[in-house]
Computed example of a mutant assay.
Amino acid sequence: MTIRFLPFLLFFAVGFTSCDVDQTQEGELPEVDVDIDTEPGQAPEYDVDWVDVDVNTTTRMVEVPNVTVEMVEEPVEVPVLDVDWPDEYGDSEETTFMVEADVDQEAELEIEEIYTTGQRMIVLASLEKEGERLSNGQLMRVSDQVVVNAPDMDVRYYIIGDRPDGMTNTRYRYISDRSEIADMMKNGQSIYSRD
């Protein structure tokens, strides 16, 4: 009879190792006679005080990339879209959709298309690395932007191309080609295309 309850006891032994358990009622096994008549048993009851967790911060020395990017203001032609949104989307305001990446070689980053599904904007860009690698571990920032009068909605950024080494910005998801997000865009409408 005790071998049957061994797994049950092991489960409780493992399950309660990280908390404070106080038994509040004794357990009682059912009484069994040969005629298969039983009297109801009683399972033990417990008060359980789970682990108390405090979250704090501390300062630690960790290795982080040291990127030196010199930003220079230059006049650049930026596409500006005036989209006539249906009334149910609410007020629109001028919004800049921007993609950028720090690369260690000559590259070109361009917004190819912007889609809307009604609840979400999808910005699809492409990153093409071409040309010479920069010397001494230098990095160059490439970017592109499109200005759209748009209502407030969720925006997802996708870049077709390989994620640059050491890129820590998680705002953009890198994909191999547009087929990876085709299901998301099939019910959408293109509001901008570079072509």
Rank of each mutant, 00 (worst) to 15 (best):
I175P: 06
L134K: 08
Q119H: 08
E94L: 14
Y174K: 06
G41C: 01
A43G: 01
M71C: 01
D195C: 01
A43M: 12
M98W: 01
M184L: 14
G161F: 03
G131E: 01
T168A: 15
V69C: 04
Q145K: 12
R141E: 11
A182E: 12
N66E: 10
E113P: 01
I111H: 06
V123A: 00
G131P: 03
A43Q: 06
I159K: 07
E45T: 11
A43L: 14
L124I: 15
A43Y: 06
R156A: 13
E63N: 09
T96F: 09
D91F: 08
V142C: 05
A182P: 00
G27F: 12
D22A: 03
M121V: 13
G27R: 13
I181F: 02
G90C: 10
T57C: 06
V62P: 02
L109I: 07
F12M: 12
C19E: 08
Q145L: 05
T96Y: 07
E88F: 10
T58G: 14
E100H: 09
D49T: 15
C19P: 01
R141S: 14
C19W: 02
L109F: 11
S190V: 15
I175V: 12
P7H: 08
S135K: 15
Y46H: 00
F11Q: 07
Q42N: 07
D144A: 13
V55L: 13
L127S: 07
T24K: 00
D35A: 07
V55K: 09
N56I: 06
